[in-house]
Every structure is written in structure tokens, then in C-alpha cells.
């Protein structure tokens, strides 16, 4: 049995739960149970925000992949032994600004994107997307688990309140 020096704290709702009367092992467990509600609450808030961000990132990644993959549908041109796709000036500017690492090729005053480079870039984006998906699956599992943990902790609080009410009712019955 654990015992600690107790100060009567000015917390009406906590005192009302009758867990402040001597810190036995049971009441310590109850106190921990109540503290856990707060922790689970914070965890859930952060995890749900994280999952929402993950969803947004995935949508962006999917849009990017679709956009990049749309160039593969074009008729390829031979660029000195390598295949490439001809870009309109708007497409070239857009790609240059968004993905400078793609290193577009100039030939006869036209801008091209090399097929192998584009495919490798799409592959790396797909890998990023796969990583996001894994994170999303894990986050989903974690949220479900913590929701259940919070429910357990709330049940403890409900039981404490119910037992307090029963004690009061017993006292009232005895007085009658």
C-alpha cells in the first residue's frame, strides 16, 4: 500500500470524487486514470491534425503525379539518342518554376523534357506518396486505439461519479 502526505486541494470536483481521502494504491490508479484523459485528449488532437495534413499532402502528391504523367502521353521526340517530349512555352515555364531539378532540354529553339528523367522523377514522387500512405495507415490505427483508451478513462470517471452518487444515496437512506 502506498501512502503519501496529502494536502486538501482546492478542487471541488476532484474532492467530490472522494479520491483525495488517503492515497491508497487504488486511489493512485484512479488519479492516473483521470490524468490519462487529458493526455489522450491532447494526443488525439495532434494525431487528427497530423492525419488531416497527411491527407492534404497525399492529394497534392497525387495531383502532381497525374500532371507529370500527362506528359508521357505525348508523342516522343528523338533527342540525340534519348527520347523526350516537346513542351509548350507555358508548360516549360510551369515545369521550370515548380521542378527546377528536372533540367529541361533545349533543341532548335524548343523546350523538351527527357523521358528517362521524367519517369525517374515520377517514380520518386510515387515513393513519397507511398511513404505518406504508410504514415496515414499508422496514424489511422493510432487514432482508433487512443479513442478507445480515452473511452476507457472516461468510463473510470463515470464509475467514480456513480459510486459517489451511490454513497450519497446510502447516507440519505440512513438518515430517513
Amino acid at each position: 500500500m502506498l501512502s503519501y502526505q496529502l494536502n486538501i486541494h482546492d478542487s471541488p470536483s476532484i474532492r467530490a470524487l472522494k479520491i483525495s481521502e488517503g492515497v491508497s494504491e487504488t486511489s493512485l490508479e484512479q488519479t492516473i486514470g483521470l490524468s490519462l484523459i487529458s493526455e489522450y485528449n491532447t494526443q488525439l488532437l495532434n494525431m487528427s491534425r497530423g492525419l488531416q495534413q497527411n491527407l492534404d499532402q497525399k492529394r497534392n502528391a497525387q495531383t502532381e503525379i497525374k500532371y507529370l504523367a500527362s506528359f508521357i502521353l505525348k508523342e516522343p521526340t528523338d533527342l540525340n539518342g534519348t527520347q523526350g517530349f516537346l513542351l509548350t512555352p507555358e508548360e516549360a515555364t510551369n515545369l521550370q518554376n515548380k521542378y527546377p531539378q528536372l533540367n529541361l532540354t533545349q533543341k532548335d529553339g524548343q523546350t523538351y523534357i527527357e523521358k528517362p528523367r521524367l519517369e525517374a522523377f515520377i517514380e520518386s514522387k510515387k515513393q513519397d506518396l507511398a511513404a505518406l500512405n504508410t504514415d496515414s495507415e499508422m496514424a489511422s490505427l493510432q487514432i482508433q486505439t487512443v479513442v478507445d483508451q480515452r473511452k476507457q478513462a472516461i468510463t473510470l470517471l463515470s464509475n467514480l461519479i456513480a459510486s459517489r452518487d451511490e454513497t450519497i444515496m446510502n447516507i440519505v437512506r440512513n438518515i430517513k
Binding site: 503519501y4 496529502l6 494536502n7 486541494h9 478542487s11 470536483s13 476532484i14 492515497v23 490524468s35 487529458s38
Partner: peptide
């Protein structure tokens, strides 16, 4: 309140 209570338990 729970946090304060836990602190008060020392």
C-alpha cells in the same frame, strides 16, 4: 484540476 491535485500529492 487533476494536474493541480496530482502536484498536491507530492
Amino acid at each position: 484540476q487533476v494536474e493541480n491535485y496530482v502536484e498536491s500529492l507530492n
